[in-house]
């Protein structure tokens, strides 16, 4: 999806909490977040963190110069783990 949009002449960036999968697809630009799957911008209701993630992501959109480049966002998951298919998803976990 992201690759195709970029190919149409639109500059793109994505969020990823699954670096292995993202590197396989090799999107033009991406920002790694350390939140569990299902919440890509942090805890529900945490407006300040959501805004910070977006601001940092757009800064990366302006600073990444090489196709496939990425940044690591340092924000942490500050809520109880998320239960998914019998497992607890902690920060940075996808499955």
């Amino acid at each position: 999806m992201q690759r195709e949009i970029e190919a149409w002449g639109i500059s793109t960036i994505s969020l990823s909490n699954n670096p292995a999968a993202t590197e396989r697809v090799n999107p033009p630009r991406w920002a790694r977040v350390r939140f569990p799957r299902g919440s890509m911008l942090g805890e529900p209701g945490n407006r300040d963190k959501q805004l910070a993630v977006l601001r940092d992501t757009f800064a990366a959109l302006e600073t990444i110069r090489e196709p496939g480049g990425h940044v690591e966002l340092s924000y942490r998951w500050e809520a109880p783990p998320v239960m998914w298919r019998g497992k607890l998803l902690t920060e940075g976990s996808y499955s």
């Binding site: 639109i10 699954n18 299902g38 911008l41």
Partner: peptide
């Protein structure tokens, strides 16, 4: 989706895989 974005003058896109 990309064509619809272009038609609306979109210049940057944020993609959020969940």
């Amino acid at each position: 989706i990309a064509a619809r974005m272009k038609a609306e003058g979109v210049e940057v896109a944020l993609v959020i895989p969940v």
